[in-house]
Computed example of a mutant assay.
Amino acid sequence: MEAHLVLSLSQYPVISFGTGSAVRLPGPSIDKPNIYSFNTTTYDEMYNSLKEKDPRLYHANGLLGMLDRNRRIKGCPERWQDWRVGVPRKDGVEDGVVDVVVTCEERCWDIVVEDLTNRNSPLNRLVHIINVDIKDNHEEALVGGKGILELANMLSEAARDEREKAGPNFVRETVDGRVPEVLAKWQERFPGLPALWTVGYF
């Protein structure tokens, strides 16, 4: 959600998803996580639930702070596999598709790639799937969020360059072809954020 926050604050249309079967948050012990449903349980409900259970524990481990931030960004966590691609949304993604998907864990990247393959490309629209590996803690999330924002800026700059060069003859494929070059330059700036890239189709 940190990447969602920094991208949206920079006026990028952005949507965010989880890929698991449920939202799992740390509990009082490793074998007792707090489990919530995607798409229906709001961040506000999660926040109030944990605050009622053990406010001291969940303040100390940062969960209440994280959920408080998240509930200011969007209503509830959504699951990638339930996303109806091509359906207009209210969050700036009017045509219901995106040009780039960024994951923050290789396991999630694998799930997204597999899911897009299983959807059989009904729209035949290319999408870049990039994994920026970020450790799951507050400090690494801040660094990763800044790195992902810079990647978005670099990709947008490449798209602007191609539009200016081509004028009315612009085609998106010229930008698609520059993504590996942009990623290589970005990786030089952020060597501590290992990245994977492939393409898929909506």
Rank of each mutant, 00 (worst) to 15 (best):
N169Y: 15
A141E: 15
V132Y: 14
D133P: 05
A152C: 08
W109C: 06
E157W: 06
K90Q: 14
R119H: 08
E139V: 13
F170E: 01
H138E: 14
H128V: 01
D95L: 06
R160Y: 10
I130S: 01
I129M: 11
N153W: 09
P168T: 02
R125Y: 08
L142D: 10
I134S: 07
A158N: 11
V143I: 11
N131C: 11
N137C: 15
V175C: 11
I130Q: 02
R119D: 01
E162P: 02
P122M: 03
I130V: 13
E157S: 14
V132R: 11
E157D: 15
D115W: 09
A159H: 07
I129V: 15
R119N: 05
V101I: 09
E173D: 15
V112P: 02
K90T: 06
V171Q: 07
T103W: 10
E105D: 15
V100M: 02
D99S: 11
T117C: 01
E157V: 07
T103A: 08
I134R: 04
P168R: 04
A166W: 07
N169R: 13
D136M: 13
G144L: 09
N118Q: 14
R172I: 06
N169W: 02
V102D: 12
K165P: 03
E106D: 14
E105M: 12
L149W: 05
H128S: 05
H128E: 05
T103F: 07
G144E: 10
H138F: 06
D133H: 15
R172H: 03
C108T: 01
S121C: 10
V113W: 00
K146Q: 15
T103G: 04
D99H: 11
N124Y: 06
V113T: 07
I111A: 08
V101K: 00
N120G: 13
V127L: 11
E157Y: 09
N131S: 08
E114A: 08
E106P: 01
S121Y: 13
A152E: 02
N153F: 04
T103N: 10
N153T: 06
D110G: 00
A158H: 14
K90V: 04
G145R: 04
P122T: 04
P168I: 03
D115Y: 11
E140D: 13
E164F: 14
N169C: 15
V171G: 01
T174M: 07
V112F: 00
G96V: 00
A141I: 12
D110R: 09
R125E: 12
W109T: 06
L149M: 10
V102Q: 02
D99K: 05
E105C: 10
W109H: 12
I129L: 12
E106Y: 07
L142P: 09
A152P: 08
K135F: 12
T174Q: 11
L126H: 00
E162M: 03
C104K: 07
S121R: 14
D91C: 02
K165Q: 08
S156Y: 06
V112N: 02
P122C: 12
G167I: 01
T117I: 07
N120I: 04
K165D: 12
E114N: 05
L151C: 08
G167Q: 02
A159R: 12
I111N: 04
R107D: 03
C104Y: 09
C108N: 09
E173M: 13
S121K: 07
K165C: 07
E114D: 09
S121A: 13
N131V: 01
V112T: 04
K90D: 13
V100I: 09
